[in-house]
Design a protein around this nucleic acid. Structure first.
Length: 573
DNA sequence: GCCGTTTTCGGCCCGACTGTTTTCAGTCG
């Protein structure tokens, strides 16, 4: 069972208890337990199998640990089933509406018997909510807008969409006179693979002008809030953007605060309490005297807690605070460390540019080498290469290599891993390639054991150097296929096979937590764009961001080497 | 319900905004 399923069960329980009116502190414990589970990089089921102590996880005590075991073993939770008898599960849907919290859900359910979004809509339209204490015509109006947004199905956005939209807003905001500092914070700054909203932080002496300029952004569909220091808008595309303005002396403290993650911030504040330091978005203060000890830059915040500055990508409460305390933070890989891109397609299959065009583009990026790795015959829809065409294609790569100076083009192929784990091209032709990339494209829905064996068998093939996009997921569209990651990673390590971080923002596969596992196990990583046109070579930054979230250093990634060292690094064991 | 250099009780992060109030509760991040 996935950690996310366990987290969902406990989260449902927490919200239902909240509606029921349970003690706020008990609720908070459940929520922090859920957060602790979400921050985990190891499988709870595996921990239970190994007899590890769940109570060693901060935020999980006797009661929640017991429930986790119960959920894994029985697939249900008795407490949750009990609570559902008193508080209908359907109330949880209403909590998803912007502006609806547990108190209002409870009130509306108890006074009017409303237990679904549909009934809520009818009541709001009929003006029946305004008679309830604390509610009025405006509440009804806002709720109807929330329902409309909910129905639009707009959820999270891909990282590249967030980055593009965010960069456009930054450009717009910078047109305002008097802006001192401007930064996108939140999950975008942490480079999460998907983002739920954008957080924009500004410092300026004239707060009001910033707020007014922000809500006047042409793409704004709805203004959700418009205050003195904080405003929120919904854009036409459904994305919510929050803007916060502070004085310059608070910018660092605010940037830290609004970068999050929530888990990281909670842990930092707890640490602050232990050290008699008070942190908020305006600065860092001594708790007793109230004396301000910093806040104009982020370093102040960490320094006040005896910590080194932590890169935003690591702020997920996954051990970064302990590492920062002990000087054990990794020197994270940077985009400039990459010396070559080893996974890209050409017009020979489903790419849009020729071998030479891709080579010139790679050279322009400053790469020392790159690989042309088109599809194999199993991917017929992409005009994949069979043995004969690949042989011809390899000659053409050689020819292109002679025509271009200053960069080495490596001969490669993205060969398909068939359902039985064999490859769809003969070993003889694979042996002529400098680099063989193997990937699963078809028949992804198989039992986890079979998928594990399938990939293990591909790793066994002595010509395979890389497993590409190892989990096959497409963000927000397709789930990863399930297999025993630890087994596969260990086998890759033992065989000397690299695992790819596919940098395409639709994939980001391996994902961050897999990178952490890969690093722990000592697996070699390669970061590739899988470009199908020259412009997509620019996607490398998303792969780097994911690697950074996965605590990877330059040394963990083979294509940070020069050509000679790279060839050694990809050699099989 | 969780936690502990204040360890088995007594605390638990906190500030902004809105709407409905007339001093504040609920929601959000």
């Amino acid at each position: 069972m996935e950690n996310s399923q366990i987290a969902k069960t406990l989260s449902d329980l927490a919200y239902l208890l909240e509606i029921k009116g349970e003690s706020a502190f008990r609720i908070r414990s459940y929520h922090s337990g859920v957060r602790a589970i979400s921050d985990l990089t190891t499988s709870l089921e595996l921990m239970v199998q190994r007899g590890e102590d769940l109570m060693a996880i901060k935020g999980i005590g006797k009661s929640i640990a017991g429930k986790i075991v119960e959920i894994i073993e029985t697939k249900t939770c008795k407490t949750l089933e009990e609570v559902k008898k008193e508080v209908p599960e359907t109330l949880l849907d209403m909590l998803d509406l912007e502006g609806m919290g547990p108190k209002k859900v409870k009130l509306i359910y108890e006074k009017l018997g409303i237990d679904s979004i549909e009934k809520l809509e009818v009541a709001a339209k009929a003006g029946k909510l305004r008679d309830l204490p604390g509610m009025g015509a405006k509440t009804e109006e806002r709720l109807l807008a929330s329902i409309e947004h909910f129905r639009s199905g707009v959820g999270r956005f891909r990282l590249d969409a967030g980055a593009t939209i965010g960069e456009a807003i930054v450009e717009y905001m910078q047109r305002l006179e008097g802006i001192e500092n401007l930064e996108l914070a939140g999950s975008l700054r942490r480079r999460r693979e998907t983002i739920g909203d954008l957080d924009l932080l500004v410092s300026c002496t004239d707060h009001q002008s910033v707020m007014d300029h922000f809500v006047a952004y042409p793409e704004v569909k709805q203004i959700l809030a418009h205050g003195d220091t904080k405003s929120s808008v919904r854009l036409e595309n459904g994305l919510q953007v929050d803007c916060r303005v502070v004085d310059a002396e608070s910018f660092g403290a605010a940037l830290h605060y609004f970068t999050g993650s929530m888990s990281h911030n909670v842990a930092m504040r707890q640490r602050g309490m232990e050290r008699n330091v008070h942190i908020n978005e305006y600065g860092v203060y001594e708790r007793d005297s109230g004396n301000r000890i910093g806040g104009d830059n982020e370093e102040d915040v960490f320094k006040a807690l005896g910590l080194e500055w932590v890169s935003p990508e690591l702020r997920e409460n996954r051990g970064e605070i302990e590492a920062a305390e002990n000087g054990k933070l990794p020197e994270l890989i940077k985009i400039g460390d990459i010396q070559g891109d080893l996974h890209m397609h050409t017009t020979a299959t489903d790419g849009k540019h020729s071998i030479l065009e891709m080579a010139e583009a790679c050279k322009a990026k400053g790469y020392k080498y790159h690989a042309i790795s088109d599809h194999s015959k199993a991917v017929a829809i992409a005009n994949g290469l069979d043995e004969q065409r690949l042989a011809q294609h390899l000659r053409e790569i050689e020819k292109a290599n002679e025509q271009i100076e200053g960069i080495e083009i490596l001969k490669s192929i993205e060969v398909d891993i068939m359902p039985d784990g064999t490859l769809d091209l003969e070993d003889a032709i694979l042996s002529e390639c400098d680099l063989v990339i193997a990937s699963v494209h078809f028949q992804q829905k198989m039992p986890p054991d079979e998928m594990t064996d399938r990939i293990l068998r591909a790793i066994d093939n002595p010509y395979v150097n890389v497993i590409a996009h190892p989990t096959g997921r497409l963000l927000l569209r397709r789930e990863p296929f399930s297999f025993d990651a630890e087994k596969v990673f260990a086998a890759a390590r033992d065989a000397g096979v690299c695992l790819e971080i596919n940098a395409h923002p639709a994939r980001l596969d391996l994902k961050d937590t897999h990178c952490i596992l890969a690093r722990e196990l000592g697996v070699k990583i390669i970061i590739n764009t899988d470009a199908h046109r020259v412009e997509e070579l620019d996607l490398m930054r998303y792969g780097i961001w994911t690697a950074r979230r996965g605590w990877l250093k330059k040394e963990n990634v083979v294509n940070t080497n020069g050509l000679a060292a790279f060839k050694k690094a990809i050699a099989r064991n």
